[in-house]
Computed example of a mutant assay.
Amino acid sequence: MKKNKLYNLVLTACFLGYSWLFFFKFFANSSSNIDLTACLFKRITTIPCPSCGTTRAVQEIVQGNILSSLVINPFGIIVALIMLCCPLWIIYDYFTKKQTFYNFYLTTESIIRTKIVAISLIFLVLLNWIWNIYKQL
């Protein structure tokens, strides 16, 4: 992936994530009788996907409830860190005319593509999925 495309994709995803959190903060709580489940997998199968609960987990982090966030979905911490760090990092790269974020992305991608890391990550995602199903999220 080219640098500009990556930066635009990450910034757009972060903007959408912030918008989704804003929507939940100010609109979802006021209309509690509306089901706002965005997960298509859960709507179709009634089984939570591995990332179900991530929005609530990020909301818990914003409120300072780290342990509660971990119980809801450990992916929330990863998403919160990405949403916080990546836009700042990309802005830094823009003003300094560097590509440190892009280089980090390329390095991380090559590490994730190694067999042992990929299998480990798949195992962790499956473990999280089992955890979500067990909690009846």
Rank of each mutant, 00 (worst) to 15 (best):
P87K: 08
P87C: 06
L88N: 06
L88H: 11
L88G: 07
W89K: 04
W89H: 11
W89T: 07
I90V: 11
I90Q: 05
I91H: 11
I91C: 10
I91D: 05
I91P: 01
I91F: 15
Y92W: 14
Y92C: 09
D93T: 05
D93N: 11
Y94F: 14
Y94Q: 13
Y94G: 02
Y94C: 06
F95V: 12
F95M: 09
F95G: 02
F95L: 06
T96W: 02
T96F: 12
T96D: 04
T96Q: 13
T96E: 13
K97M: 06
K98C: 00
K98V: 00
K98R: 15
Q99L: 01
T100C: 03
T100N: 11
F101T: 05
Y102V: 02
Y102C: 01
Y102L: 00
Y102N: 04
N103H: 12
F104K: 09
Y105W: 15
Y105I: 03
Y105E: 04
Y105V: 01
L106C: 08
L106A: 00
T107H: 08
T108Q: 05
T108A: 15
T108P: 01
T108H: 04
T108W: 13
E109N: 12
E109L: 13
E109Q: 13
S110H: 03
S110W: 03
I111D: 03
I112K: 03
I112Y: 08
R113W: 02
R113S: 12
R113Q: 14
T114Q: 10
T114S: 07
T114N: 14
K115Y: 08
I116K: 14
I116Q: 09
I116V: 09
I116Y: 10
I116G: 03
